[in-house]
Amino acid sequence: MSMSANLEKRINKQTFERYLSSLRYSMYVITHPFDGMWDLTHEKRGSIAAGNTILLLFFLTNLWNMRFEKFLFNRVRWERVNIWQQILGTLFPLLIYCVANWCLTTLFDGKGRLKDIYLGMCYSLTPYILLINPCTIISNFVTKDEGDFLAYFESLALVWCGALILVSVMQIHDYSLMKAIMAIIFSIVGMMIIVFLLLLFFSLISDAVAFFISIYKEILFRVY
């Protein structure tokens, strides 16, 4: 009894350590993108749990930035912020990107699975978390003029993330640079198609629901 409990504890500890090391691996990925992105999926150095964590942190980073950045640099009306819209604005496009990229690359002999694409994307977001959060904190200690460099850091974060995503497509699917760029461009087209289909789907569903509701009301009206 006590032996098995002990074993379970040890396994959990091992899983946790594996999780931590895969999370720590993101630091290696962002500094050695080519090597790191290859090992991320092919050598199983990354984990979905760490990827989820990074994605969550990315979302929270955006929220924290909106909430805690000094008003000198921030024109967000916090009372007007809708958490669902935030989710839609940040997480949803990223997830759709994964799907679109997977749909496209499976047709054009990409090596990556959906899981790999998801991992690559999540790990690519690390610089954003690392740069934006300090910016949010620093913004509380500088004047408007001194705060100009915050904008540079913000664009640096975006460029870094973009480059990492490009490298992730190259390494995960074993693509050349040109092919990766094309894959990303057409993934964006694919994203638009997916959004269009989703909107179509939901408007049709809501129409159908409205139809049945009106039938129900009609029956109520006629019968009683």
């Binding site: 669902w84 839609l88 759709i96 994964c98 998801y118 939901f202």
Partner: peptide, 14 residues
């Protein structure tokens, strides 16, 4: 993944 996607899309509708 599909469930998450659908959930998010439903949020759009609601």
């Amino acid at each position: 993944f599909a469930a998450a996607l659908l959930g998010a899309a439903m949020v759009v509708a609601v």
